[in-house]
Simulated assay, not measured.
Amino acid sequence: MDTREVVDTYYRLANSGEWDAWCDLFAADQTMDEQLAGHVEGRETLREMMKGFPEMYASFANVPRHMVVDGEQAAVVSDITGRTHDGITVEAKVCNYFRVTGGLISYFANFHDSVPFAAVTGT
């Protein structure tokens, strides 16, 4: 897959809750700087982390609004809407940065206001 296909698939799988397949989009030695989870290294570390995601959110959507792809890099501005099983709603604007190497995400970072997530994370 080229960079655009990887990024499109990232959002499609996230929005359909296919977290194991979503993790497969990342390189085995991926590095992620995630606004809430911090620095995450390795696909299997990410996979373990994501196992708890369905327990946290009853519904989750990350809808791209603007995308720029340049070779092996992409930046996406998107809107996140999530609802916990307790009915807490989270809404946030996000910017995601992707570096895709060999058809897999080798580096990922996201940037967003963490305040909307406080009710869910307890921070």
Results as ranks from 00 to 15, higher is better:
3 T>W: 15
5 E>K: 15
6 V>G: 04
7 V>E: 02
7 V>T: 04
8 D>N: 07
8 D>K: 12
10 Y>M: 13
10 Y>T: 11
14 A>F: 06
14 A>L: 05
15 N>H: 09
17 G>Y: 02
17 G>I: 12
19 W>G: 05
20 D>V: 02
22 W>D: 00
22 W>T: 12
22 W>S: 01
23 C>V: 10
23 C>Y: 10
24 D>G: 00
26 F>I: 12
26 F>P: 00
26 F>S: 11
28 A>C: 05
29 D>G: 01
29 D>T: 06
29 D>C: 07
30 Q>P: 00
30 Q>W: 13
30 Q>C: 13
31 T>S: 02
32 M>V: 07
33 D>F: 05
33 D>A: 11
34 E>Y: 15
35 Q>C: 10
37 A>P: 03
38 G>H: 13
40 V>A: 10
42 G>A: 07
42 G>H: 10
42 G>C: 11
43 R>S: 07
44 E>C: 04
44 E>P: 03
45 T>K: 06
45 T>W: 13
45 T>Q: 11
45 T>A: 11
47 R>I: 13
48 E>M: 14
48 E>Y: 10
50 M>I: 00
50 M>E: 07
51 K>I: 05
51 K>W: 01
52 G>P: 01
53 F>P: 05
53 F>L: 14
53 F>A: 14
53 F>N: 06
54 P>I: 14
54 P>F: 12
55 E>S: 15
56 M>T: 03
56 M>H: 00
56 M>Q: 01
56 M>Y: 00
57 Y>D: 04
59 S>A: 13
59 S>T: 13
61 A>D: 04
61 A>W: 08
63 V>W: 01
63 V>G: 01
63 V>D: 02
65 R>W: 00
66 H>F: 05
67 M>P: 04
68 V>K: 03
69 V>R: 01
72 E>D: 09
75 A>Q: 08
76 V>C: 01
82 G>E: 06
83 R>M: 00
84 T>P: 00
86 D>I: 08
91 E>V: 14
92 A>I: 01
93 K>R: 05
95 C>A: 09
97 Y>K: 12
97 Y>G: 02
97 Y>L: 07
98 F>A: 09
99 R>W: 04
101 T>C: 01
102 G>A: 05
102 G>T: 06
103 G>R: 15
104 L>I: 02
105 I>T: 09
106 S>A: 06
107 Y>F: 14
108 F>N: 10
109 A>M: 14
112 H>V: 15
114 S>F: 14
115 V>G: 04
116 P>H: 02
116 P>G: 07
118 A>E: 14
119 A>N: 13
120 V>K: 11
120 V>A: 07
120 V>I: 12
121 T>A: 09
122 G>F: 10
122 G>D: 05
